[in-house]
Design a protein around this nucleic acid. Structure first.
Lengths: 332, 332
DNA sequence: GGATTTTTTGCAACCGGTTGCAAAAAGATT
DNA sequence: AATCTTTTTGCAACCGGTTGCAAAAAATCC
């Protein structure tokens, strides 16, 4: 059994408060006392129990990290950045996987039962009500990759998907494409809807450009590939804005199978700028979503909220960026 | 402030023990009492605080999930499977990212301070001493993807890498390759060493087959590609067993750039059977590591250890399997 | 209906810590 | 040396629960 505060106090012949104070920074203890206690603690291999401590301090340093996206490779980077960011600040991520559609309400309760200090909801597909449930229970929450709204009820960090859609449209227009298409991810995702909205809005300014759209069932190679094979039955557009890089790569594979050539016959622009888009045999032109900045900002915001729980909600949006590679015809 | 046990007891006009008992299964409470308490609890939105409870029950249901691999795409699946497996059993993963080489000892202490019920070390590169440190503190631990040893000191679940190396060698021999090579991952990883050992042992049985080996610096596209470009300066072997699928894909890209053709000029066999190996434009022949079984078994073993902490250590090994695709010449 | 057994309930101590408060000790001032 | 400040320390209550034990209540038996 691990040594407790009391054991150390006995061994050192002092009160438990003295021991407690040696292990809480900012508390007042004389040097002599500190040495005595530290000696005894070292002998016993003692270190304070965080959970018992949390009972009185009301701080567990646990942060719920909730996601329902364990398939898209960018989420590995997301987890990497989150865990490091939190760890660097002495916080501990309690990971919650919401993939299998278990009742979200239950997760809210569970995280409350573990007295997490805050919750990060890293998902663009979970309904806003989910994040709000935490806020209602007075648990600090930030919704990373959440939907931007002019009157956010919870803190949101991410990108402006409408603007990203516009950006894609402009990229295609600038390269002289006249017949362009949107090949989105899951139709119900707000990010898909927003990007389509921006894409169409921007194109509407150019009456001579025609546009169309369709959706893949999920962000996967196969979904992109089969959707493109289906589209290839009819007439194809000159260029496609795809909802995701893996999707794009599936699309590229279908195009190749159809005997067509990129960017000669068809242009493709992806989204996310995943690691593999840079690979020489892929070289996908894509839109970079500044994940690092988004996550770091989310972590910062979370730590700020720990000190100021009633902080007025804000939306933090980061600009995306076109990454020029080889799947769109060159500019001008 | 959330309602406490005492609040419920007051509201229901009963003792705190009565309330506590209604919320611990297996405790004896009359139906009338239970109804009364549940009513009061519902009115107050009460649910028990797990951490306070853990103080007396000595069970937090927290499981440390430690990894230092946040780059290899298969780990996204690993996290997915682990989190689901643990959640299904009412356990909660506390994620620890050891990527940035922070003193492992510190993580041991930290997990102890959070009173985790057990620890899963999901890594093939962390030293065995790390897992042992938990065992020494009487914390149940399973090392998933750990090295097989005939006298394991901690529970290990994974594959037999030596055997996997043999399997790769046999696959190449069966297809008639006479000049074969091993292109491993990081040289220091025990998994790399073991696979090389098995590979060479098997080949040593065929004196007419020549072999050589080299290592990529990490499991990445670029590392595979640049290593292959380097090798292409000298004479190439007929077939390569690569340490990982991403590595293989980098190798394939270099081969293509060199104007060579797979499997006509060179054969490639990868490792892991990642999602992307199945993609039509890659179609990599590879060795499947049964991740699902490994993780599920790890979770099972962990739950078993929670009931029986001094369980005798065992190694659970799962057989790998060749996945035939298009990067090795056909059999026979 | 009374004695006996079983079930239900509350008391009070405990899990491993923290903290407000007042007493004790140390240091400063005259 | 006596008095006043400041710092250090211990007491005891508390954080939010659980649980062994004995008393009270209910159920069973004769």
């Amino acid at each position: 059994m691990a040594a407790t505060l009391k054991d150390v106090a006995n061994k050192a012949g002092v009160s438990t408060s003295a021991v407690s104070r040696t292990f809480t920074d900012g508390a007042s203890v004389s040097d002599k006392m500190r040495r005595k206690v530290e000696k005894a603690a070292a002998d016993l291999g003692y270190s304070p129990n965080f959970l018992a401590r949390s009972l009185t301090t009301r701080r567990t340093k646990l942060i719920g990290l909730v996601s329902n996206n364990f398939h898209n490779p960018i989420f590995l980077e997301v987890f990497d950045l989150f865990t490091r960011g939190l760890q660097d600040r002495g916080l501990r991520p309690l990971l919650v996987n919401l993939s299998n559609e278990t009742d979200p309400e239950q997760s809210v309760q569970m995280l409350r039962q573990y007295s997490v200090d805050g919750v990060v909801v890293a998902s663009s597909t979970l309904p806003p009500a989910f994040s709000k449930a935490f806020r209602d229970k007075k648990i600090p929450v930030v919704n990373t990759f959440g939907r931007y709204s002019s009157s956010p009820e919870v803190h949101v960090v991410g990108i402006d998907n409408v603007e990203a859609g516009r950006m894609a449209a402009r990229a295609l227009l600038q390269r002289g494409y006249k017949d362009v298409a949107f090949l989105g991810g899951p139709e119900t995702a707000t990010s898909t809807q927003d990007r389509l909205k921006g894409f169409q809005e921007e194109l509407a300014l150019c009456p001579d450009v025609t546009t169309r759209h369709s959706f893949a069932e999920q962000y996967s190679f196969q979904a992109g590939r089969s959707e493109m094979l289906r589209l290839a039955q009819g007439g194809l557009a000159e260029a496609y804005f795809c909802g995701d890089d893996v999707l794009s790569i599936g699309v590229l594979s279908a195009i190749k199978d159809a005997g067509l050539n990129v960017p000669g016959d068809i242009g493709i622009i992806g989204f996310n700028n995943m690691e593999m888009s840079r690979w020489e045999n892929i070289a996908l032109t894509t839109i970079h979503q500044p994940i690092k900045q988004i996550i770091n900002s989310s972590v910062e915001l979370m730590t700020a909220m720990l000190d100021e729980p009633d902080r007025y909600p804000e939306a933090r949006l980061f600009p995306c960026q076109i990454i020029e590679r080889d799947t769109l015809r060159p500019l001008g």
